[in-house]
Design a protein around this nucleic acid. Structure first.
Length: 423
RNA sequence: GGAGAGAUGGCAGAGUGGCCGAAUGCGGCAGCUUGCUAAGCUGUUGAGUCGAUUUGUCGGCUCCGAGGGUUCGAAUCCCUCUCUCUCCGCCA
């Protein structure tokens, strides 16, 4: 959500943001138009209401005779007000619906582009393996080991479902635990969060409206399964005014994530790349409304994920996500893409976003500034720490050995009882 | 799941149709006092939004959990919902 007052004065910037993000710029004009109409109607309604109020309080002190007369005109005005109020209400709803669609302007250094093809590589890390034997895909490796069973996953829950067994299941657990400890060491507080959340959380974090098709919705209870712990983590303090001294709030959660993957038929159908349910360790930070701070924190959060990838000895790159691939609310996003031999390419494994006050405005999440004054909206940021099974693809394929066994990076071994390979 | 009670300003807590944006206390802020001293006294103190503005403010409207209704007029009466608490049942 954007500040309506600001939008009124900077419609051109918002329109430009919509164009850069490949969103429909007509929402901006629609908003401006409806908003102006709404405010002028509001003037009218409030004027009439003021009249009515004044004459109404006079009524209480009147003599019976003149009272009857006054009551009559009062009723007429009331009817008039009612119909105006009805218009005002529906207009207000329209304005709000449009406001929820306004795009956050992207940062200056976000590259222009239509889709992920326009993302710009910033850096590369690690060594892409070039072994003297043919590399197998993770699903072939896993099947041969008897530790990945996609067929039976599909039997139980339909396409894009899977089973992990034995050491690969333990490997998943190990990676997630390492990721959590990694974040504890960086001062993050662990939170165990609800993953079935109400509409306000989905709207507040920017997933609704627009992302309904992507979410599993429990209609009977009007709750949605989250696609990421970002949703509950960011929503924790919605509606609250925090003390400046409490900021920044750095939180990490491990949660299951659910995505319908609607509109991806036939895409990434092989293996564990695109699945309906997965685990993710997610970092979320809430801080003051300070652009510089926000920028630095974004880099710091990206660093946490990069450090972990280094510990896992995986080759990856960082990309500056282009405007067309940016969400409605994101100011800037950096993705980490990890090398996946079976795909012969880097595949997205992490996504680090900063939002300024886009989410916090929707969530009504504020703080009292240091030197006093009016509460301000916090800035919010989030980034993946690790997501599995997608990271298992990289781990299994990059660390496979000639005999089909998987080498365990040193950092993970303590989490697997000292085991140095899976065979 | 059943029965009951409740939701009022930063907090506690009054308020059963116009005198209520809301008593009182605490807290906060400002000043005074400086031999009742980790105190006393006096004053002051909600938010949002729209408009005007000589940018100091001024005016309108809204807000007593949320949404609807009755009424000329609702914190107050009616309905629905959400949440909290107590008791019973069930459960991990």
């Amino acid at each position: 959500m954007l500040d309506a007052k600001w939008v009124r004065e900077h419609a051109d910037i918002v329109r430009d943001a919509a164009i850069r993000k490949r969103l429909n710029p007509e929402v901006v004009d629609g908003f401006m138009e409806k908003d102006a109409a709404y405010r002028s109607l509001l003037q009218e309604v409030e004027g009439l209401r003021a009249q009515l109020k004044a004459s109404s309080s006079a009524l209480g002190k009147m003599e019976a005779a003149e009272r009857e007369q006054a009551l009559q005109t009062q009723r007429e005005r009331k009817a008039q007000l009612k119909s105006l109020e009805k218009q005002e209400q529906s207009l207000r709803a329209e304005v709000h619906a449009l406001a929820m669609l306004l795009p956050m302007p992207p940062a200056e250094d976000v590259p222009d582009g239509d889709d992920d093809g326009g993302n710009v590589e910033i850096s590369r890390h690690g060594q892409i393996p070039e072994p003297d034997f043919p590399l197998q895909s993770h699903d072939d490796l896993g099947e041969a080991l008897g530790m990945i069973d996609i067929k039976r996953g599909v039997k139980i829950a339909g396409s894009r479902n899977y089973l992990l067994l034995g050491d690969v299941a333990r490997l998943e657990r190990a990676v997630l635990n390492l990721a959590l400890d990694h974040m504890f060491a960086r001062g993050f507080q662990m939170v165990s969060v609800p993953t079935l959340v109400n509409r306000a959380c989905m709207e507040g974090t920017g997933y609704f409206p627009g992302g309904e098709e992507q979410a599993y919705i429990a209609e009977r209870d009007d709750l949605a399964l989250v696609g990421t712990a970002e949703v509950p983590l960011t929503s924790i303090h919605s509606g609250e005014t925090l003390e400046a001294s409490a900021l920044p709030l750095r939180r990490v959660a491990l949660s299951p994530c659910y995505r319908r993957e609607a509109g991806t038929y036939g895409k990434d159908t092989k293996g564990l790349y695109r699945v309906h349910q997965f685990w993710k360790v997610e970092q979320v930070v809430l801080g003051p409304a300070d652009e510089d701070w926000s920028l630095q924190e974004h880099q710091r959060m990206l660093g946490h994920a990069k450090d972990l990838m280094d510990l896992l000895e995986l080759p990856y790159r960082v990309v500056n996500v282009c405007t067309g691939d940016l969400g409605q609310g994101q100011v800037q996003k950096f993705d980490i893409e990890t090398w996946m031999p079976s795909r012969k390419s880097y595949g997205e494994t992490h996504s680090a976003s900063r939002f300024h006050d886009f989410q916090t405005r929707r969530l009504n999440l504020r703080y009292k500034p240091e030197g006093g004054g009016k509460p301000k909206f916090c800035h919010s940021l989030n980034n993946t720490v690790i997501a599995s099974p997608r990271v298992l693809i990289a781990l299994m394929e990059n660390h496979q050995q000639k005999d089909g066994s998987i080498r365990i990076p040193a950092a993970l071994q303590p989490y697997l009882g000292g085991q140095s390979q899976i065979a």
